[in-house]
Write a protein that binds this DNA or RNA. Structure first.
Length: 938
DNA sequence: ATGTAAAACCAG
DNA sequence: ACGCTGGTTTTACATA
């Protein structure tokens, strides 16, 4: 290097690199057992920098000590950074050794961060007409980028320049500090301005130019919250700017001239690399023994194999496995065929019909079957014999997807199989695939002879284990299939299924069909032995297409009204928030229970605080209500704020997001989740739409009947209490239901010995609470809390109740014993509800299980009954000549949409069908309502 | 950055 | 120790 050449200085951010390499690389140790993964990454990077030329001058910059001028300005700066992990600590000094071994200059200076030194060197080298490359991916260094100064990502070896900075901060490098000053940085404790994130910060800087200009313009801003925050936290923003702005006039501990790239001593380096066990680096630098690298790699591979080759847990087998089951378990997995032509697919369809049973599975580009596209389908005709038909794979330049049938062509070939009622089609969660076929253009109602392994399993093992295919396979087949995640990746690495290479997709998808068919072979005989066949064949299986129809239909919502509600809630929340902050004496995040607890109990010193498990103050609504009742203003306002926040985020905003262009929302009903046989609803959950408060009811009003139609609601009256009266055989309760009496009033009359006539509402309310308490497996403590009375008083109520209805105590004891003896209890329709905790040693957990055992037959029996009605209703409506559609189920309620003209008749028919869905020793009663919206109909 | 737990609260 | 069954949102924290 001659001095007349302009210097090019390469500055490696050593401290920043250590942390990144440590987290990015898998753990590894040197021959003497010290963790060295970050050192290894650093060594590789440094070798690469030296090999691929770069500059005339080179230095690695390190932090020195924790104390810098920033902690003088702002003591919290980086204050609660945790100590570096134990495996990283020994690597700091090793990295300094590495720079020495490479004969590279390293620079550090007490009182200054590496970033400040880098900034100062960059400025110095520019001053003498040179250029500079900063090797780092630290966002805090991006402010230095400009003419003659560029950045390089040390891991990816890609340049970081204006587009990357723009992407990160939304502004040019010289404005980065202003943006950072506004948005702050939680990892370094840089405060910024609350409520201003990256988007707002860059928007403000782009509009006003500088931080000071933004602060000056703040008083005239329209958005009140932002204006107030900017004014109040102006100084915090100024301090933040000082914290993030790098010092570029630090005295340089080593003159630039002394940083000139130096020859390294190969022997010193080789010795050091050897001592660290970095043979691959040695080899690459051409100073080592190639065989060493191979030995190293082979050893690592062997270690890996011994882990991944671990034997899977033995499968759960039944003692009466027949030969077929054994064959099912024995056939090898894998070696599946990819089907690309009509002739080949036709062969598989014929083989399926020949076998008269097959498994079918679809692959899609999404989880919502109403909008997902079919990417491929698979077919299994015998254990171990399965194929995958790619339909919409995209492929890449290096790896084209190859010839594929069109969706249309494939459907035309497979339609005769799906509609053939002499060949059984087995699915895992048929409802999903039925709707996928439907969306692809094959009417799901024409698909016949369907079995569903998920429901076969659920009908006999609810509550015992999950019903996902992977879990069922591991359990019953002793084989864990390839997981979806390993095929598509996870997080930011996830790719759409259509981009999975066809070979890999075949391995995965055909295996799913294979596993489904094998599961069917294993589960089918168990249905009979477990007495779950009728439940499966008469309830669960036929319900699946009914629910598919309901999901496909969706329910109409009033978009405009939802929008109004959202806006209304928003403005009212903003007002409340100001009042809350004023009452608290400072700003805080009202949505944070933790911050609220600190305010109420630490700062304001209000009484009645209770800490939860994690030591945080409890601030749930009962705590806040108690404080509000004592006349405190803040908790009352928070309660009101929370109600609106909940309604807005969970309902108005979420529903608006999930409403289709046809102004309808389509939920998804899960059939195999609950431990009792109930359905659940998600995406969105339409089984918990508010109703109990005035504001909540406004949300229910946005579920509407389209023009010319009506909504009809039909719900079972007191169904769980009726089941209790029936299964526990309680004469007094049975008679009350027979006589159509007010059941809670009758209970009150009998338990408290007051006349039915002229009963006061408090007494009735208490009886009602006990009645519900019984269904849930009452405890004196729980009832006391519910009614706000002493536990002793609650105890005496319960005793009086049991004395009057001794059969209930018998029933409860029967259920506890049944659960203890068998591990499950039965609903009146034979559904098994497993109660896993019943044998627990811990009394708390055991009693919890006992309450489940008491509740499950009632909740589950009610679920069975409404499911039976749901299976019959579509036929009954069609037979009656009605065009009405069933839309929703909410545990004891069904919601229908019908032409205005037929609404009354439909309501009558629905009532009849629902009331005759079961024959108990007490009558079932269904109440119906008709309206233009759900609130009105209910 | 991504995933998960805890707290809170909506329904039957 | 918070009588049962669920789902969703948000914050806070751990993971890499």
């Amino acid at each position: 290097m001659t001095h007349s050449d302009a210097p090019h200085l390469v500055l490696v951010d050593g401290s920043g690199f250590i942390f990144r390499a440590f987290h990015a690389l898998p753990p590894m140790t040197s021959p003497d057992g010290v963790p060295v993964n970050a050192v290894y990454g650093f060594t590789n990077m440094l070798a690469r920098m030296l090999r691929e030329h770069v500059g005339t001058h080179l230095a690695v910059i390190f932090d020195a000590g924790r104390h810098t001028f920033r902690s003088d300005i702002y003591p919290q700066y980086k204050a609660h950074r945790p100590e570096p992990p134990e495996d990283l600590r020994p690597q700091f000094s090793l990295i300094r050794d590495a720079t020495r071994a490479f004969n590279v200059a390293s620079v550090e200076l007490a009182g200054w961060e590496a970033d400040d030194l880098i900034a100062s060197y960059a400025r110095a080298v520019r001053k003498v007409g040179g250029t500079c490359t900063i090797v780092s991916s630290d966002k805090d260094l991006m402010q230095l980028i400009g003419p003659g100064v560029c950045m390089l990502d040390p891991m990816k070896q890609t340049p970081i320049s204006l587009p990357e900075v723009e992407k990160k901060f939304g502004v040019l490098p010289e404005k980065v500090v202003d943006v950072q000053a506004l948005m702050g940085d939680p990892t370094d404790n840089v405060p910024g301005v609350p409520g201003i994130g990256p988007k707002t910060a860059s928007a403000l800087i782009n509009e006003f130019g500088t931080l000071e200009a933004v602060l000056a313009a703040a008083p005239d801003m329209k958005k009140s919250k932002r204006r107030d925050m900017l004014i109040e936290h102006a100084d915090a923003a100024r301090i933040s700017r000082q914290l993030v702005e790098l010092a570029c006039d630090v005295p340089l501990p080593v003159p630039i001239a002394d940083l000139a790239v130096r020859e390294m001593d190969k022997l010193t380096l080789a010795d050091w690399l050897e001592s660290m066990g970095f043979r691959s680096v040695l080899t690459r630098l051409g100073v080592g023994h190639p065989s060493g690298a191979h030995a190293h790699r082979a050893a690592r591979a062997a270690a890996h194999a011994s882990i991944s080759g671990a034997v899977a847990e033995a499968p759960t087998t039944t003692p009466d496995q027949d030969d077929l089951t054994k064959a099912t378990l024995a056939a090898p997995y894998g070696a599946y065929e990819t089907v690309r032509t009509a002739q080949d697919l036709q062969k598989w369809v014929s083989a399926a019909q020949e076998a008269s049973v097959c498994a079918v599975d679809t692959e899609t580009d999404g989880l919502d079957p109403l909008s997902a596209n079919m990417v491929g389908l698979s077919l299994a005709t015998a254990p171990g014999k399965a194929c995958y038909v790619p339909l919409r794979h995209e492929g890449t330049l290096e790896e084209p997807a190859g010839e594929q049938l069109s969706v249309q062509a494939a459907l035309d070939i497979i339609r005769p199989l799906l509609t053939d009622d002499t060949t059984l089609k087995v699915f895992q969660n048929a409802k999903f695939d039925l709707l996928v076929f439907d969306h692809a253009g094959l009417d799901y109602t024409t698909i016949t002879a369907v079995d569903d392994t998920m429901l076969m399993s659920y009908a006999q093992s609810a509550g015992l284990h999950g019903q996902g295919m992977d879990e069922l396979s591991t359990r019953h087949l002793g084989h864990t299939p390839i997981s979806y995640d390993t095929v598509t990746g996870t997080g930011r690495n996830r790719i759409p299924f259509a981009q999975v290479p066809v070979k890999r997709a075949t391995d995965y998808a055909a295996e799913d069909a294979d596993v489904t068919l094998r599961l069917w072979h294993v589960l089918r005989p168990t249905l009979r032995t477990n007495k779950a066949l009728a439940l499966y064949e008469q309830i669960e299986r036929p319900l699946s297409p009914v629910l598919a129809g309901m999901e496909k239909a969706g329910i109409a919502v009033d978009r405009a009204e939802l929008g109004h509600l959202s806006k209304d809630f928003e403005t009212r929340m903003a007002v409340m928030e100001k009042e809350i902050h004023a009452a608290a004496g400072r700003d805080f995040n009202v949505a944070s229970p933790r911050q609220l607890g600190e305010i109420l109990f630490d700062e304001m010193g209000l009484p009645g605080g209770k800490r939860g498990k994690a030591g945080a103050w409890g601030t749930d609504s009962s705590v806040l209500q108690d404080l509000a009742d004592q006349g405190h203003e803040l908790p009352e306002k928070v309660l009101a704020w929370r109600q609106l926040a909940k309604l807005k985020s969970t309902y108005t905003d979420a529903l608006l997001r999930q409403t289709t262009t046809e102004d309808r929302v389509h939920t998804s009903f899960q059939m195999a989740i609950t431990t009792t046989g109930r359905l659940s609803s998600n995406d969105p959950n339409l089984q918990n739409i508010p109703i109990r408060t005035e504001e909540g009811s406004r949300i229910r009003q946005t579920f509407i009947a389209p023009k010319g139609k009506k909504l009809i609601s039909a719900d079972y009256s007191q169904i769980e209490l009726r089941l209790l009266a029936a299964v526990a055989n309680i004469p007094a309760l049975r008679e009350a239901f027979e006589l159509k009496q007010d059941i809670h009033a009758r209970t009150a009359s009998e338990v408290f010995g007051v006349p039915l006539e002229g009963m006061d509402s408090l007494t009735r309310r208490r009886a009602k609470a006990i009645n519900f308490g019984i269904i849930y497996g009452i405890s004196a403590f729980g009832l006391a809390r519910q009614l706000g009375i002493p536990a002793g008083e609650a105890r005496s109520y319960i005793d009086a109740y049991f004395a009057r209805y001794p059969e209930i105590r018998d029933y409860m004891e029967r259920m506890r014993e049944e659960a203890r003896a068998q591990g499950y209890v039965l609903t009146p329709f034979g559904r098994r509800c497993y109660v896993p905790g019943i044998q627990e040693k811990s009394a708390v957990r055991r009693q919890y299980a006992e309450r489940q055992a008491i509740n499950a037959p009632l909740q589950g029996g009610a679920a069975d009954i409404i499911k039976r009605a749901m299976v019959r209703l579509p036929h009954a409506l069609a037979e009656g000549g009605f065009s009405a559609r069933m839309l929703l189920q909410v545990h004891d309620e069904l919601l229908f949409e019908a032409d205005e003209a037929e609404a009354e008749a439909v309501a009558q028919l629905v009532k009849t069908v629902m009331e005759s869905a079961a024959d108990l020793s007490v009558p079932l009663v269904v109440e119906t309502g008709i309206g233009n919206n759900w609130a009105e109909a209910h």
